[in-house]
């Protein structure tokens, strides 16, 4: 996603220039760009007239915020107790092999980010995997290529 200053300015100007809105503005940037670009952090510090360091503290504290570009699709693999017992570790290895990345990383083509989470609250469906907002339950190694395949861009392997 291209980072353009106009979009950043628009996001910021949706809110009054007050520190208590900083998290909301960071979230909006995260949603729009799939990460918080450095330009966005600096523009926000200027808009709020606050130290960049306090925003950096916030952006590195919340797991939902990321300072590195994330993939177009976010894969959340559950490694909570129930899913763990039902073999989520194998799935992690499977996805890692299919995409050539480790948990916490983004694939080179920018398509996928892989995150491990602790219980998605759907233990009856364990092991659970969520891609963007779609839940997949009782996932098996065999189904992984098919599930991920749906999200691949046309013409990609």
């Amino acid at each position: 996603m291209q980072v353009d200053m106009q979009t950043i300015t628009d996001i910021l100007h949706n809110y009054p220039a007050q520190q208590r809105y900083s998290l909301a503005m960071l979230q909006d940037m995260q949603r729009h760009f799939n990460y918080i670009p450095r330009e966005g952090m600096e523009a926000l510090a200027e808009y709020l007239d606050c130290p960049l360091s306090s925003l950096y503290a916030m952006a590195t504290f919340y797991k939902a915020l990321s300072l590195k570009p994330k993939g177009r699709h976010i894969i959340k693999l559950c490694d909570g107790t129930a899913c763990h017992i039902r073999g989520s570790v194998n799935l992690v290895g499977g996805v890692e092999r299919l995409l050539g990345i480790q948990a916490g990383e983004t694939s080179a083509d920018g398509q996928f980010s892989l995150e491990l989470v602790n219980c998605l609250g759907s233990c009856a469906l364990a092991p659970v995997m969520v891609v963007d907002d779609t839940y997949y339950g009782k996932v098996t190694m065999e189904r992984l290529p098919e599930i991920l395949g749906q999200y691949r861009e046309e013409g990609q392997p």
Binding site: P51, S53, L55, L67
Partner: peptide
């Protein structure tokens, strides 16, 4: 002074640092 440093990350990775 100027607020140049802050706590960064959290949990076991928490540290004091300058932005980036």
């Amino acid at each position: 002074s100027v607020g140049a440093i802050s706590t960064v990350n959290r949990g076991v990775l928490k540290e004091i640092a300058t932005p980036y």
